[in-house]
Design a protein around this nucleic acid. Structure first.
Lengths: 108, 108
DNA sequence: TTGCCATATGCCGATATCGGTATATGTTGC
DNA sequence: GCAACATATACCGATATCGGCATATGGCAA
């Protein structure tokens, strides 16, 4: 058993920085593979592989147009991540920190 | 070059489901290692290893008390993930979806 | 058909992972 | 000091990864 496959869920797919860059780029609108290659300065096969992973977890969708393949962001698949992280939001919001509680008590 | 180390950032650390479970558990308050082992039904060495990873990216902090080591959530380190995902929030909010725009236009 | 462009896949080497088992380190109490 | 407990680390085998390079697939145009 090794690490969980990157294609197993959005959490794993998004752990890779380049894939996050691709998502950031696609947030601006549909792009052909070559467009991504040019914009991010990555090698074409690498981009295709990353797109495959993103496709398998539903983070992007494809549309054929002539000899190009236009990829677009399918943001819904980011929601599980958002929900999980948000569930812990209070953990970093100062007002709920242990220190602040102490300070609040002192100032009361 | 292989996959990025799990200790490189919170994104990678959190890609592992068991580590997310540990975080979920610690959200309820400080716990000793054995407490985590008991609560999650994992092997003790595995838990220690996961905690090491979480510590290295700053997601948890430790406090020694006698022969126990009490771990607590350090939620601040989740913020980068939250911020990144949130930046793409509109991508899954229906109001901004392409289909909904079409429907809005039809109903107008 | 032939050739060019756009993209996908295959194979490689190197590496970090993850679970399991055994063992080391450190603490408390007798 | 010694035993019991709590936790960390070491080593192992299996595996999926990631980048690089070569090559296959598919569309289009002359």
């Amino acid at each position: 058993m090794a690490r969980t496959a990157t294609t197993s869920d959005a959490f794993n797919a998004v752990a890779e920085p380049r894939r996050r860059e691709i998502i950031d780029l696609l947030a601006g609108g549909e792009r052909a593979v070559n467009g991504i290659v040019a914009a991010l300065g990555l090698a074409q096969p690498q981009v295709s592989k990353h797109l495959r992973v993103l496709r398998e977890v539903g983070l992007v969708a494809v549309r054929d147009e002539g000899r190009q393949r236009l990829y677009r962001l399918e943001g819904r698949s980011l929601k599980p991540i958002h929900d999980w992280v948000k569930a812990h939001e209070r953990a970093w919001e100062a007002r709920f920190g242990a220190l602040d509680e102490v300070l609040d008590n002192l100032g009361r």
